[in-house]
Amino acid sequence: DHWHVHIDGERIRLDGASEEFIRTLEELIRRGTDARELKEIIKEYLR
Rank of each mutant, 00 (worst) to 15 (best):
L38E: 00
A35Q: 07
D34L: 07
L46R: 03
R30M: 12
E44G: 06
L14Y: 03
G32H: 05
R13V: 15
R13N: 15
G32K: 01
A17D: 03
R36V: 11
W3A: 09
I22S: 02
L46P: 01
D8A: 07
E37V: 15
I42A: 01
I7P: 01
D34G: 13
R47I: 15
E10F: 05
R11W: 15
I7T: 02
L28S: 04
D8K: 03
L28Q: 04
W3M: 10
G32D: 04
S18A: 08
I41A: 09
R13W: 15
R47H: 14
V5E: 01
L46V: 11
R11G: 12
A35R: 05
I7W: 03
Y45A: 06
R36F: 13
H4T: 13
G16D: 08
S18T: 12
E26P: 00
R30W: 09
G16W: 10
L46Y: 14
I29Y: 04
G32F: 03
E26K: 12
R23W: 08
L38D: 00
F21K: 01
L46S: 04
E26S: 08
D34C: 06
G16E: 06
R30V: 09
R36L: 11
R23N: 09
R31P: 01
A35P: 13
R23F: 05
F21G: 00
R11M: 15
E27F: 04
Y45F: 10
K43S: 06
R23C: 05
D15W: 14
E20R: 08
R23T: 08
R47W: 12
K43H: 13
K43L: 14
E44H: 09
I41V: 12
R30E: 11
R11Q: 15
I12V: 09
L25W: 03
I41G: 01
K43C: 07
I42F: 02
I29N: 01
S18W: 03
G16Y: 10
F21R: 00
H4Q: 08
D15R: 07
I22G: 02
Y45K: 02
G9L: 06
R11C: 12
H6L: 15
V5H: 02
E26L: 10
G9Y: 05
R13F: 15
R31T: 10
L46K: 06
L46C: 14
D8H: 04
L38V: 08
I22Q: 06
H4E: 15
D34Q: 09
E19P: 14
R36Q: 14
R11L: 15
I29V: 08
R31M: 10
I29D: 01
S18D: 11
A35L: 10
I12P: 02
G16S: 07
L46D: 02
G9V: 05
E44C: 06
L46M: 09
I12A: 01
H2F: 10
E20M: 09
A17S: 05
I7S: 02
E10D: 09
T24W: 09
I29K: 02
E40R: 12
W3N: 08
E27Y: 07
E26W: 10
E27I: 09
E10I: 03
I7M: 06
L25Q: 00
L14C: 02
E40I: 11
E37T: 15
Y45T: 03
T24Q: 14
E37Q: 13
I42L: 06
T24D: 10
R30N: 12
